[in-house]
Write a protein that binds this DNA or RNA. Sequence first.
DNA 1: GTTAGGG
DNA 2: CCCTAAC
Length: 611
Amino acid sequence: MEKVVEVEGSGEGKFEATGLEKNNFILSSPRHVADPVVYKLVRVDGNGQLVPATDDELMVVEGLLENEKYETHIVADTGQALGCISNEVSSSGMPQLESSEGLSQSENTEADTEKLSSQLEETVPCGAQSLSDDHAPGSVGECLKPLDGPIHGGSSTSAGCISSKPDFSKLKGEICLDNLSIKELHEVFKATFGRDTTVKDKLWLKRRIAMGLTNSCDVSTTTFVIKDNKLLKKDNEDGANNVNLATVKEFPAVAVEYSGDMLNSLSSQIDENQTVSAVRSGNNVVENNFANEDLAADQRAAKRVRKPTKRYIEELSETESKEYNGNSGRLLASTKNIELRPLPSKSHARLARNASLEGRTVITRLDSLGGFGIQVPCVYRVRRSRPRKNVTALLKFHPSGMSMTSTFIKRGLDVHGSEMSNESMDKVLVAKSSPEQAPHQFALESNKEKSSTDWGQNMELKYVDPSGDTSDDNVVTVPTAKGGIRRKHHRAWTLSEVMKLVEGVSKYGAGRWSEIKRLAFASYSYRTSVDLKDKWRNLLKASFAQTPVNQGAVSRKHPSMPIPAPILLRVRELAEMQAQGPSPNLSSSKLLACGGGGGGGSVNETRPGYL
DNA sequence: GTTAGGG
DNA sequence: CCCTAAC
């Protein structure tokens, strides 16, 4: 693993000059990343030297790599968004990305969401350059140069990243683009958008500028006079005072396509730009590229759409496959990628998507020891706990040959993750060394729960926790086409757990789930307060439905752990008791518990009456 | 962040 | 167990 890799001859000097060594190194060498593991171990020092990276840095770089692998476009990105990131990173000396926590994940997700849609349409303008001609000095500089100015006319998304503002003095008041030369138009363009353009088409320039300045797509194609941020049409010499609402008609093709795209309810800016480029591409291929360039920039500035809920995404993804066959895959694609991470192109997006689905449905194995079937993903486990969300989706894209690698990476993340911070860490260690050390666990449980930890190929990567404390064990993901089983995670309640729950309720009262969870379930990190609540609800139901008359409350048919009558009885008692006298004195019991319980798994005083 | 409820 | 509305 400890390999230091010679980066392709692209030369450190270039990066050295930019002052963005690390970032550029990573960002501009996606093509080189044949082996992420290797790259992971290298960092670029301030002077451009390659040195082995520290662990922390590994994590950081790893985050970048992850992004990079699935969003090569980050390099292709020509605009401000990237620039902001780069600048921030370089200024602080170290990338801010925290790959070890969900932070960067979620944030990136949002940012990606924006870039993503553009990515799908985009044909890698600037990035293509810097990538293909590595030896062209200053290609990087060219690429970053546009960052010197914020996008004007767009949202303020990326504003603030850059200090220097373009000079808008010449843009004050009324502007008549009609009389400007191409060179002047370029200047205005730069002032407007904060970046250069090489488009030679006057009409296009004027239109773009007009749109930028007016933040509107109602731009005439014949006359461009802008006043007070509004576009004035001057078609008929004096009619300069009319904001032309019908100008779009002058661009029939645009109008048509525009409305069509509108149906997709994407950002109007995006659509508009797509249309523009599409229409004009018929005339000028080269220009189309630049149009796309603008598209990218505009999309970054476009209003951020609220991130769909997990559920929504899931459901959407189900329908998507069908709709994808249609010609309206644009919206779907972009939406989808919120989950899947950005991808370089449409086709990639599709592939990745399929891969993800397969990864979820097919690659599982069945384990039926604990009295219930458990499907365990073989290649990769979908993490289901709080902090991190979609990182897992990434790893699923790896070709089979990479699966091990990705798992390693993920594991590394997990170790550094927040989840391992508290008692879980201890548990893991315990699990590795000797199971006996797990204090408050019943042999019964250990056997049962360990059964679900068989992992086949990459078993060594799993932290087997006999105490059942591994928070993301027993993940079951079965997104059957429709009406599929939605249960993703099941862990049977053991008798001891039930008893602890009952005890907790008796001590702290039903409803104080978080208390109970914290004090009585300190050792069961996988039981949330909601779980406790749910379980109690079920217990209640059971205890009342099934009269305690029958001592042999051992339900015959269910293979699942039957709840002993005494416990049910107790549950019922508690329920009735608490139904009347809500709670004796919470504060006192609370204090008692805190003071006497002592750190770890308190709840020592096993109930005297029962068991 | 918790809790209550519905699914 | 999942999801959400309320708090």
